[in-house]
Design a protein around this nucleic acid. Sequence first.
DNA 1: AATATGTTCAACCGCGCTTTA
DNA 2: CTAAAGCGCGGTTGAACATAT
Length: 258
Amino acid sequence: MGRKPCCDKLGVKKGPWTAEEDKKLVNFIATNGQCCWPAVPKLAGLRRCGKSCRLRWTNYLRPDLKRGLLSEDEEQLVIDLHARLGNRWSKIAASLPGRTDNEIKNHWNTHIKKKLLKLGINPVTHETLNKESKPEGSCSHAENSADNNITISSEDNYSTNATTTDNCSTGDNSNLFDRICNDESLLTSLWLDEPPLVDTSWNSTATPAATDTCNNETRLPSWEDNSAWLLDCQDFGIIDFGFDCLNENDLNTSKTVA
DNA sequence: AATATGTTCAACCGCGCTTTA
DNA sequence: CTAAAGCGCGGTTGAACATAT
Protein backbone atom coordinates (compact mmCIF):
# COMPACT_ATOMS: atom_id res chain seq x y z
CA MET A 1 0.00 0.00 0.00
CA GLY A 2 2.76 2.35 0.92
CA ARG A 3 2.66 5.49 2.83
CA LYS A 4 2.20 8.82 1.17
CA PRO A 5 5.22 11.05 1.72
CA CYS A 6 4.67 13.73 4.33
CA CYS A 7 5.27 16.39 1.75
CA ASP A 8 5.83 16.84 -1.90
CA LYS A 9 9.48 16.18 -2.56
CA LEU A 10 9.52 18.49 -5.55
CA GLY A 11 10.46 22.03 -4.67
CA VAL A 12 11.01 21.24 -1.02
CA LYS A 13 14.27 22.60 0.31
CA LYS A 14 16.49 20.50 2.53
CA GLY A 15 19.62 21.08 4.52
CA PRO A 16 20.59 23.80 6.95
CA TRP A 17 18.12 26.55 7.67
CA THR A 18 18.94 30.11 6.73
CA ALA A 19 18.35 33.08 9.01
CA GLU A 20 15.65 34.23 6.64
CA GLU A 21 13.81 30.93 6.92
CA ASP A 22 14.13 31.00 10.69
CA LYS A 23 12.71 34.48 10.70
CA LYS A 24 9.71 33.43 8.68
CA LEU A 25 9.00 30.44 10.86
CA VAL A 26 9.42 32.32 14.13
CA ASN A 27 7.23 35.16 12.97
CA PHE A 28 4.58 32.77 11.79
CA ILE A 29 4.46 30.83 15.04
CA ALA A 30 4.64 33.97 17.13
CA THR A 31 1.49 35.23 15.47
CA ASN A 32 -0.37 32.02 14.74
CA GLY A 33 0.92 29.51 17.22
CA GLN A 34 1.71 25.91 16.53
CA CYS A 35 -0.87 24.16 14.44
CA CYS A 36 -1.17 22.04 11.36
CA TRP A 37 2.51 21.62 10.64
CA PRO A 38 1.87 20.40 7.09
CA ALA A 39 0.25 23.75 6.35
CA VAL A 40 2.91 25.86 8.04
CA PRO A 41 5.41 26.00 5.17
CA LYS A 42 2.82 27.30 2.76
CA LEU A 43 1.33 29.77 5.20
CA ALA A 44 4.72 30.97 6.37
CA GLY A 45 6.11 31.22 2.88
CA LEU A 46 8.68 28.51 3.32
CA ARG A 47 9.76 25.93 0.80
CA ARG A 48 10.16 23.34 3.50
CA CYS A 49 8.47 20.19 4.63
CA GLY A 50 6.11 20.71 7.55
CA LYS A 51 7.98 18.06 9.41
CA SER A 52 11.20 19.97 8.91
CA CYS A 53 9.54 23.11 10.25
CA ARG A 54 8.36 21.31 13.36
CA LEU A 55 11.81 19.89 13.95
CA ARG A 56 13.49 23.23 13.45
CA TRP A 57 11.12 24.84 15.89
CA THR A 58 11.25 22.21 18.59
CA ASN A 59 14.99 21.63 18.43
CA TYR A 60 16.31 25.09 17.77
CA LEU A 61 13.90 28.01 17.64
CA ARG A 62 11.73 27.37 20.66
CA PRO A 63 12.23 30.37 22.95
CA ASP A 64 12.65 28.41 26.17
CA LEU A 65 15.49 26.26 24.99
CA LYS A 66 18.68 26.26 26.96
CA ARG A 67 21.79 26.45 24.88
CA GLY A 68 25.19 25.04 25.58
CA LEU A 69 26.46 21.89 27.15
CA LEU A 70 24.47 20.02 29.73
CA SER A 71 25.37 20.87 33.29
CA GLU A 72 26.82 18.30 35.64
CA ASP A 73 23.44 17.81 37.26
CA GLU A 74 21.68 17.44 33.96
CA GLU A 75 24.25 14.95 32.75
CA GLN A 76 23.87 12.93 35.92
CA LEU A 77 20.13 12.96 35.53
CA VAL A 78 20.38 11.79 31.95
CA ILE A 79 22.56 8.87 33.01
CA ASP A 80 20.16 7.79 35.69
CA LEU A 81 17.07 8.18 33.56
CA HIS A 82 18.74 6.34 30.72
CA ALA A 83 19.50 3.51 33.09
CA ARG A 84 15.82 3.32 33.92
CA LEU A 85 14.22 4.20 30.61
CA GLY A 86 16.74 3.23 27.96
CA ASN A 87 16.88 5.21 24.72
CA ARG A 88 13.57 6.91 25.32
CA TRP A 89 15.03 10.31 24.71
CA SER A 90 11.77 12.17 24.65
CA LYS A 91 10.93 10.82 28.08
CA ILE A 92 14.35 11.75 29.36
CA ALA A 93 14.07 15.19 27.81
CA ALA A 94 10.75 15.70 29.54
CA SER A 95 12.64 15.73 32.83
CA LEU A 96 15.12 18.34 31.68
CA PRO A 97 13.36 21.65 31.08
CA GLY A 98 14.74 23.50 28.10
CA ARG A 99 16.46 20.49 26.64
CA THR A 100 15.35 18.57 23.57
CA ASP A 101 15.41 14.86 22.95
CA ASN A 102 17.72 15.45 20.02
CA GLU A 103 20.12 17.45 22.13
CA ILE A 104 20.20 14.84 24.86
CA LYS A 105 20.60 12.04 22.36
CA ASN A 106 23.51 13.84 20.75
CA HIS A 107 25.13 14.57 24.09
CA TRP A 108 24.74 10.99 25.12
CA ASN A 109 26.32 9.66 21.93
CA THR A 110 29.18 12.15 21.84
CA HIS A 111 30.05 12.67 25.49
CA ILE A 112 28.41 10.48 28.07
CA LYS A 113 28.78 7.22 26.17
CA LYS A 114 32.51 7.72 25.84
CA LYS A 115 32.92 8.69 29.45
CA LEU A 116 31.09 5.61 30.63
CA LEU A 117 33.11 3.34 28.36
CA LYS A 118 36.27 4.97 29.61
CA LEU A 119 35.25 3.97 33.10
CA GLY A 120 34.45 0.44 32.09
CA ILE A 121 30.70 0.90 32.20
CA ASN A 122 28.50 -0.42 29.45
CA PRO A 123 26.45 2.58 28.31
CA VAL A 124 23.64 0.31 27.16
CA THR A 125 23.19 -1.88 30.20
CA HIS A 126 24.85 0.42 32.75
CA GLU A 127 26.65 -2.59 34.09
CA THR A 128 30.36 -2.49 34.75
CA LEU A 129 31.94 -4.30 31.83
CA ASN A 130 33.69 -6.93 33.94
CA LYS A 131 30.47 -8.04 35.56
CA GLU A 132 28.36 -8.30 32.46
CA SER A 133 28.51 -12.06 32.16
CA LYS A 134 25.27 -12.48 33.98
CA PRO A 135 22.53 -15.06 33.46
CA GLU A 136 20.24 -14.54 30.47
CA GLY A 137 17.52 -11.97 30.93
CA SER A 138 18.89 -10.80 34.21
CA CYS A 139 19.48 -7.28 33.05
CA SER A 140 16.98 -4.67 32.01
CA HIS A 141 17.21 -0.93 32.19
CA ALA A 142 14.57 -0.64 34.81
CA GLU A 143 15.88 -3.46 36.90
CA ASN A 144 19.56 -2.80 37.04
CA SER A 145 19.49 0.93 37.43
CA ALA A 146 18.43 0.98 41.00
CA ASP A 147 21.19 -1.25 42.20
CA ASN A 148 23.87 0.01 39.88
CA ASN A 149 23.68 3.75 40.13
CA ILE A 150 26.40 5.75 38.45
CA THR A 151 27.55 9.15 39.53
CA ILE A 152 29.63 11.61 37.61
CA SER A 153 31.63 14.58 38.72
CA SER A 154 32.94 17.59 36.86
CA GLU A 155 36.37 15.99 36.85
CA ASP A 156 34.93 13.06 34.93
CA ASN A 157 35.32 10.86 37.94
CA TYR A 158 32.61 8.28 37.92
CA SER A 159 31.73 5.67 40.41
CA THR A 160 29.23 2.89 40.49
CA ASN A 161 27.13 2.67 43.55
CA ALA A 162 26.02 -0.81 44.45
CA THR A 163 23.62 0.23 47.15
CA THR A 164 20.02 1.24 46.83
CA THR A 165 19.87 3.43 49.89
CA ASP A 166 22.28 6.04 48.63
CA ASN A 167 20.49 6.33 45.37
CA CYS A 168 21.29 9.22 43.04
CA SER A 169 23.24 11.34 45.47
CA THR A 170 25.51 13.81 43.76
CA GLY A 171 25.91 16.44 46.41
CA ASP A 172 24.27 19.68 47.39
CA ASN A 173 24.15 21.15 43.92
CA SER A 174 22.12 18.38 42.40
CA ASN A 175 18.69 19.48 43.51
CA LEU A 176 17.00 18.80 40.22
CA PHE A 177 18.57 15.42 39.93
CA ASP A 178 17.81 14.46 43.49
CA ARG A 179 14.26 15.65 43.23
CA ILE A 180 13.49 13.65 40.13
CA CYS A 181 15.57 10.70 41.16
CA ASN A 182 13.83 10.40 44.47
CA ASP A 183 10.43 10.95 42.99
CA GLU A 184 9.31 7.43 42.23
CA SER A 185 5.95 8.65 41.00
CA LEU A 186 7.67 10.75 38.40
CA LEU A 187 9.81 7.89 37.24
CA THR A 188 6.79 5.66 37.20
CA SER A 189 4.87 8.16 35.13
CA LEU A 190 7.73 8.38 32.69
CA TRP A 191 7.89 4.67 32.45
CA LEU A 192 4.13 4.36 31.97
CA ASP A 193 4.02 6.98 29.23
CA GLU A 194 2.04 9.39 31.32
CA PRO A 195 2.41 13.12 30.75
CA PRO A 196 5.66 14.50 32.14
CA LEU A 197 5.37 16.00 35.57
CA VAL A 198 8.56 17.95 35.74
CA ASP A 199 8.91 19.91 32.59
CA THR A 200 6.26 22.45 33.27
CA SER A 201 8.15 25.13 31.44
CA TRP A 202 7.09 23.90 28.08
CA ASN A 203 4.46 21.63 26.65
CA SER A 204 3.80 23.52 23.52
CA THR A 205 4.08 27.00 22.23
CA ALA A 206 1.83 29.96 21.80
CA THR A 207 -1.55 29.39 20.35
CA PRO A 208 -3.55 32.09 18.71
CA ALA A 209 -5.44 32.34 21.97
CA ALA A 210 -2.21 32.70 23.86
CA THR A 211 -0.98 35.44 21.65
CA ASP A 212 -4.29 37.16 22.18
CA THR A 213 -3.48 37.34 25.86
CA CYS A 214 -0.45 39.40 25.09
CA ASN A 215 -0.95 43.06 24.70
CA ASN A 216 1.33 45.14 22.57
CA GLU A 217 3.84 45.38 25.35
CA THR A 218 4.11 41.70 26.02
CA ARG A 219 3.88 40.17 22.60
CA LEU A 220 6.93 38.54 21.16
CA PRO A 221 9.32 40.95 19.53
CA SER A 222 9.08 40.73 15.78
CA TRP A 223 11.99 40.76 13.40
CA GLU A 224 10.95 44.21 12.44
CA ASP A 225 11.32 45.17 16.09
CA ASN A 226 14.71 43.64 16.51
CA SER A 227 16.50 41.78 13.78
CA ALA A 228 19.04 40.37 16.21
CA TRP A 229 16.39 38.74 18.32
CA LEU A 230 16.77 35.26 16.95
CA LEU A 231 20.51 35.23 17.40
CA ASP A 232 19.96 36.26 20.98
CA CYS A 233 17.44 33.46 21.34
CA GLN A 234 20.01 30.98 20.27
CA ASP A 235 22.63 32.10 22.74
CA PHE A 236 20.66 32.84 25.86
CA GLY A 237 17.79 31.59 27.91
CA ILE A 238 14.22 32.75 27.90
CA ILE A 239 14.81 35.50 30.40
CA ASP A 240 17.91 36.71 28.66
CA PHE A 241 16.11 37.63 25.50
CA GLY A 242 12.93 39.04 26.84
CA PHE A 243 10.45 36.18 26.88
CA ASP A 244 10.20 36.67 30.60
CA CYS A 245 7.65 39.29 29.63
CA LEU A 246 5.34 36.32 29.40
CA ASN A 247 4.25 35.67 32.91
CA GLU A 248 3.37 32.28 34.30
CA ASN A 249 -0.25 32.62 33.26
CA ASP A 250 0.73 33.49 29.75
CA LEU A 251 2.96 30.49 29.56
CA ASN A 252 0.34 28.23 31.03
CA THR A 253 -2.21 29.54 28.60
CA SER A 254 0.18 28.96 25.76
CA LYS A 255 0.50 25.33 26.74
CA THR A 256 -3.11 24.56 26.02
CA VAL A 257 -2.88 23.49 22.46
CA ALA A 258 -5.81 21.69 20.96
C1' DA B 1 50.69 25.96 5.60
C1' DA B 2 48.51 21.94 3.96
C1' DT B 3 46.40 17.74 4.70
C1' DA B 4 44.39 14.00 7.35
C1' DT B 5 41.70 12.53 10.97
C1' DG B 6 38.45 13.03 14.64
C1' DT B 7 34.40 15.26 16.78
C1' DT B 8 30.12 17.57 17.09
C1' DC B 9 25.41 18.40 16.27
C1' DA B 10 21.67 20.08 13.13
C1' DA B 11 18.85 17.89 10.15
C1' DC B 12 16.86 14.05 7.65
C1' DC B 13 14.63 9.52 7.23
C1' DG B 14 11.61 5.94 8.15
C1' DC B 15 8.74 3.75 11.22
C1' DG B 16 5.02 3.12 14.59
C1' DC B 17 1.28 5.06 17.08
C1' DT B 18 -2.76 8.00 17.24
C1' DT B 19 -6.37 10.54 15.28
C1' DT B 20 -9.72 11.47 11.88
C1' DA B 21 -12.98 10.83 8.17
C1' DC C 1 -14.12 -1.08 10.81
C1' DT C 2 -10.72 0.63 7.75
C1' DA C 3 -7.56 3.51 5.49
C1' DA C 4 -5.45 7.88 5.22
C1' DA C 5 -3.28 11.59 7.43
C1' DG C 6 -0.83 13.64 11.15
C1' DC C 7 2.47 13.43 14.72
C1' DG C 8 6.41 12.25 17.31
C1' DC C 9 10.20 9.25 18.19
C1' DG C 10 14.76 7.12 17.65
C1' DG C 11 18.48 6.06 14.48
C1' DT C 12 21.49 7.81 11.17
C1' DT C 13 23.89 11.02 8.17
C1' DG C 14 26.91 14.52 6.64
C1' DA C 15 28.64 19.25 6.76
C1' DA C 16 31.24 22.20 9.61
C1' DC C 17 34.61 22.70 12.79
C1' DA C 18 38.66 21.28 15.72
C1' DT C 19 42.83 18.99 16.38
C1' DA C 20 46.81 16.30 15.03
C1' DT C 21 50.46 15.29 11.88
